[in-house]
């Protein structure tokens, strides 16, 4: 199909160049703005994602289930064996459930006896995982609960088995959880039974590092890792995982949470989290107000 646009092309090209330049400058301006005032642009990002993604949750959740089923297709060949294994596991779990119920009753009786009250603030809000971050470099998930359900930035998130991450970015109907495996994630933890303090540092692998252990001889593979509550970041006592020794002789944590199969997450209402209000202004020295008053009193005498 022939078209003769040569003449109009010549006329529009300089104008087009200017428009391209303006558009590129605008986009780079957004990037600069993000670098300068990150919380505001991240709030904009939360709002954009909040508008676009949750409206498709009627499609996201079933499609994720179907894709998961297709991915497990290899195991369909031994479906009968799997069925038998699952039945056996179920029997064992029923026995454990009975034991857990009895322990819970005993625990309640003992607490009642000692007049100990549990922290009522550690209730939780359950959310469904809507979406991934879409990038292999950022480990985060999107939940379908947001401001209107009372979610606040900084609250910890678990999946019932172990700590999963932290809320960072809340929209009206959705919120983003930064997982422990993300390279920006730093959680202060305690290693039981030795009580050693460490920092759980995500490094984009499935085994985050345990840094700044004071006495590495006290730590052994298989020890439990729980949150320490240091610095008011997270409430203490949440299970994170187990210590493993990696090939490069560094201590890592194998996370208890099931990262292959995150569907329902619990967001714990933690009073410890401090909300991010401003852009992080420079902290200056305190003003010397106290020196003015004695001078006044001296003048009034």
């Amino acid at each position: 199909m022939a078209r003769n646009r040569n003449s109009s092309d010549e006329f529009f090209r300089p104008i087009r160049r200017i428009l391209v330049g303006v558009f590129v400058v605008l986009l780079l301006g957004i990037f600069l703005f993000w670098r300068i005032d990150s919380p505001r642009v991240e709030r904009l990002r939360s709002n954009i994602v909040d508008t676009l993604v949750p409206s498709f949750d009627w499609l996201l959740v079933p499609l994720a289930t179907v894709t998961g089923m297709i991915q497990d297709f290899e195991s369909y060949a031994r479906i009968y064996q799997q069925n038998q294994e699952l039945r056996r596991d179920l029997q064992q779990m029923k026995a454990w459930k009975e034991a857990a119920l009895q322990l819970e009753q005993e625990n309640a009786k003992l607490r009642d006896l000692n007049k100990v009250r549990l922290d009522p603030k550690l209730t939780y809000i359950t959310g469904v995982v809507l979406a991934d971050s879409g990038s292999p470099f950022r480990q985060s998930v999107l939940l379908n609960v947001g401001h209107r359900d009372g979610i606040v930035d900084g609250w910890p998130t678990t999946d019932g088995l172990g700590l999963v991450g932290r809320i960072s970015g809340v929209g009206e109907n959705s919120s983003r959880v930064v997982l422990l495996t993300d390279s920006n994630s730093r959680i202060p933890v305690t290693i039981q039974p030795s009580g050693e303090r460490a920092l759980l540092t995500g490094n984009n692998s499935s085994l985050p590092r345990l840094d700044f252990i004071e006495e590495p001889e006290n730590v052994r593979a298989g020890d439990r890792v729980i949150t320490s509550g240091d610095g008011g970041v997270f409430p203490p006592g949440l299970l994170v995982g187990q210590v493993v020794l990696a090939n490069d002789r560094s201590y890592r944590a194998r996370l208890s949470a099931e990262y292959e199969r995150l569907e329902f997450l619990r967001v714990l209402r933690s009073p410890h989290a401090a909300p991010l209000k401003d852009t992080g202004a420079l902290l200056g020295p305190p003003e010397p107000e106290a020196m003015i008053e004695p001078a006044d009193e001296a003048a009034n005498d």
């Binding site: 499609l63 995982v129 809507l130 979406a131 971050s133 292999p136 998930v141 692998s205 499935s206 292959e260």
Partner: peptide, 15 residues
């Protein structure tokens, strides 16, 4: 849409 499907949330995937 397909990229943000939460199918396997373990890190270490190729871009």
């Amino acid at each position: 849409f397909m990229r943000i499907l939460p199918v396997d949330l373990r890190p270490g995937a190729w871009p």
